[in-house]
Each structure stands twice: as structure tokens, then as C-alpha cells.
Design a protein around this nucleic acid. Structure first.
Length: 188
DNA sequence: TGCCCGATTAACT
DNA sequence: GTTAATCGGGCAA
């Protein structure tokens, strides 16, 4: 019997929550799949959007855990994060890739491609496939339209450095489902 | 106000 | 392998 993830799940160290999300199932309006790749961003991390303090964009990270932080990437794409840690520590997990399981037709339509591996393999692609934009900024993750189910079986977790950053680029804070063909880049 | 650059992607050579 | 697209945050002036 699967368990719906509630706020308490997110109210822990971002470095514990991130690997625990691998194998979980994310749905948005009934469309989604299995989370196979994430990255952890802690307030003390120069690469985190919260590192330089609260702004209008990152405000939700400074609130309670279990909410959606969504930002515009390179002026083009949307990226989805889950706010973590007890309130006061502005940290979040970036959702980087899903293995699509439900709503494949809707995803293909929104993405304009048919190849399953191109639907949700990347933070920008995933948001486009699910129809997530800044309209969902600050929404709670344990209520509709979001639905996040805990992983029900053990998962082999791969670890490596995060992608696309220049600051604090050495830390192994990228987590993935070992062997998954849906990750945005292979783990070494 | 102006400038630089980024938690990306797709379309090039 | 390289590069354009595109825009808000952060900082210098």
C-alpha cells in the first residue's frame, strides 16, 4: 500500500530527503511518473538560490517545508523544486527527471515529441510535460493538483556532482535511480 | 539604469 | 563538439 508524502517528509535535511525521493511517484493533475533524478540545494551552498538571502523569487524557500518552489531558467524553462528542512533553513530539492508512467498522451502533446526518453528527462522538459508553470509557485505538495507517493520498494541510489552549475560544483549532491535510462545524464 | 550571467534545451556543424 | 534563444536576479555605477 503506497503512502502519500506529507509535510513531515520534507521537514528534514535536504540531503536526506533528496535520495528518499528517488523511486517516489510524482503526479500533477494525474500526469507524471517515477522520480529518477534530483539535486539537493542547501541555504549554506553558494549554488543555492537562497544563498544570498530572501528575494521575491525565492521567498517560498524561506517558508515552511512541503511547498513548490518554481523558477524560470535561462529565461525560457520552468524548473520544479520541493522546499525542505524545518522552516528557517531555506533549502530545496530540484526535480530533474521522471520515468513517465501515467498520462503519456498528454505529455507527448505538450512536449511535441513521441520518444518516452525525451518527455521528462531534464528539469525543463519535466515541467513542460506536466504543464507546470509559475502558476503553481508556492502550492502545497500534499494537496491537489500535486500527488507524491513514497517509493514502495528498495532502490539503488546513484550519486554524483550536480549539473550545470559553476559554484560548489564538486559536491556529490545529485541523486539518481541506478541504471535508469530516464536520467538527464548518466551517472559515472 | 546597465551589464553580466545562469539549477536549460534544441538545433546546429 | 558549439551556440542561440530569452529574461530576471544581483551588483556596480
Amino acid at each position: 500500500m503506497a503512502t502519500l508524502l506529507r509535510r513531515k517528509f520534507f521537514a528534514r535535511s535536504v540531503h536526506d530527503v533528496a535520495p528518499d525521493l528517488i523511486g517516489a511517484t510524482l503526479k500533477f493533475r494525474g500526469v507524471g511518473g517515477v522520480i529518477v533524478e534530483v539535486e539537493a540545494y542547501h541555504q549554506s551552498d553558494p549554488a543555492a538560490h537562497s544563498f544570498n538571502g530572501r528575494t521575491e523569487r525565492n521567498a517560498v524557500m524561506f517558508g515552511p517545508p512541503g511547498y513548490a518552489y518554481i523558477y524560470r531558467s535561462y529565461g525560457i524553462h520552468w524548473c520544479l523544486n520541493f522546499v525542505c528542512e524545518p522552516q528557517g533553513v531555506a533549502s530545496a530539492v530540484l526535480i530533474r527527471a521522471l520515468a513517465p508512467t501515467v498520462g503519456l498522451a498528454a505529455m507527448r502533446s505538450r512536449r511535441g515529441v513521441t520518444d518516452e526518453r525525451l518527455l521528462c528527462s531534464g528539469p525543463g522538459r519535466l515541467c513542460e510535460a506536466l504543464g507546470i508553470t509559475d502558476r503553481q509557485y508556492g502550492l502545497p505538495l500534499d494537496h491537489p493538483p500535486f500527488e507524491i507517493w513514497a517509493r514502495s520498494e528498495d532502490a539503488m541510489i546513484a550519486v554524483g556532482p550536480r549539473i550545470g552549475i559553476t559554484k560548489a560544483a564538486d559536491h556529490p549532491w545529485r541523486y539518481g535511480l541506478a541504471g535508469s535510462r530516464f536520467v538527464s545524464k548518466p551517472f559515472r
